[in-house]
């Protein structure tokens, strides 16, 4: 019990330090990088959903982007049709994603490996396209416009002039911190250990009294809540629509998780920052070489793919695992 309390205290301190560091960055960075960092934090929450689902419990999902869409659309409908504030809409979005995760989890509990991957892939393709099927509700392929709005007056009076990108980052930060705290606590709890047991050996964990189906459904529900939260924050940048949550978004989350380290919270953060900032770094390097627009447009995706292949072949644990190994060697 004291060990659990000790973990809890450590996780709280780390989360507070994380919040302070991001807050400092929110003052230091220029608007473009503030906006990029805000996106990285949104994706961090999304990648954490994969860390929980795949990294901890061993269930593969290629459809986290679809669950992000569930969150985004639920919030957009709540804001535009019910006139709710974005904060209430965010809560509703998470609840909607939890429910979607429950339905998905019930189906997923019967599936594993490639069958589960295939099912979630289909969902990633199907859910955003529902927006075009029910155009009058979901706004068709254009989508629904929502945004973070202007920074509140109290924040501006406290911090001086608060830019739109700064506000995006500051509005996202509490949710990222909560996601971090929740993830680190649950992974260090009895629940987290049962998920890992499930991942490592289903039969053994079943013999030890873990209800396999119930546990799988529970992980799916929690993971979906994270994805829904990431989705609504991602949509609040300006628009919720099929083109905001394409299949490539699901693959980007997976790329971030694998590059950073799919079993690590630190890996999720590194992976999120990598997928957001890597194109900028490549762009700034390529400006010296004046490539054609075709090369410039596709190069970031090509390099990400190459890094992904190299990670899987050379360092399957991702960057976080590599850092951990290096520290142990030192």
């Amino acid at each position: 019990m004291s060990r659990t309390r000790s973990y809890g205290r450590k996780n709280l301190i780390i989360s507070i330090l994380f919040a302070v560091l991001i807050f400092i960055l929110s003052i230091k960075l220029d608007p473009y990088n503030l906006g990029q960092l805000a996106v990285a934090l949104m994706l961090f929450i999304g990648v954490l959903s994969i860390v929980l689902l795949t990294g901890a419990s061993g269930q593969i999902s290629l459809g986290q982007g679809a669950l992000m869409a569930v969150g985004g659309f639920a919030a957009a409908l709540a804001i535009l049709n019910l006139g709710l504030s974005i904060w209430v809409a965010i809560i509703l979005a998470v609840i909607a994603a939890l429910l979607a995760g429950l339905l998905l989890g019930i189906a997923a509990a019967r599936l594993s490996g490639p069958y589960l991957a295939g099912t979630t892939l289909v969902i990633a393709l199907a859910i955003p396209s529902l927006a075009t099927r029910f155009e009058s509700v979901f706004g068709g392929d254009v989508g629904l416009n929502i945004n973070f709005g202007n920074p509140p007056a109290w924040l501006s009076s406290l911090m001086g002039s608060v830019g739109y990108e700064q506000w995006q980052l500051l509005a996202t930060l509490p949710f990222a911190v909560l996601a971090l705290l929740f993830t680190s606590n649950i992974l260090n709890s009895r629940t987290g250990r049962s998920w890992r047991a499930l991942r490592d050996n289903e039969i053994a964990s079943s013999l030890n009294g873990i209800d396999i189906s119930q546990t799988k459904i529970f992980v799916f529900v929690i993971s979906s809540g994270f994805a829904g939260l990431a989705g609504v924050l991602y949509g609040l940048r300006g628009i919720v629509g099929p083109s905001v949550y394409p299949i490539s978004l699901s693959l980007m989350l997976l790329t971030g998780a694998v590059l950073g380290g799919i079993r690590s919270i630190l890996g999720a953060l590194i992976g999120s920052i990598l997928v957001v900032f890597l194109p900028d770094v490549i762009d700034s390097i390529m400006k010296h070489f004046s490539p054609s627009e075709q090369v410039a447009n596709y190069l970031p995706a090509m390099i990400s793919s190459l890094l992904l292949i190299l990670t899987v072949v050379l360092n399957p644990g991702g960057i976080a695992h590599g850092l951990h190994r290096t520290r142990r060697h030192l």
């Binding site: 780390i14 330090l17 994380f18 560091l21 991001i22 400092i24 960055l25 230091k28 960075l29 220029d30 473009y32 990088n33 990029q36 960092l37 971090l180 680190s184 919270i265 630190l266 953060l269 590194i270 920052i273 900032f277 900028d280 700034s284 976080a320 850092l323 951990h324 520290r327």
Partner: peptide, 20 residues
């Protein structure tokens, strides 16, 4: 603490990007 170290490293990387 590895996470905090990671954030700090990331912070340095991000602040190294040009401000305008």
């Amino acid at each position: 603490m590895a996470l905090v170290a990671g954030v700090a490293v990331s912070s340095l990387a991000v602040t190294a990007l040009p401000a305008t």
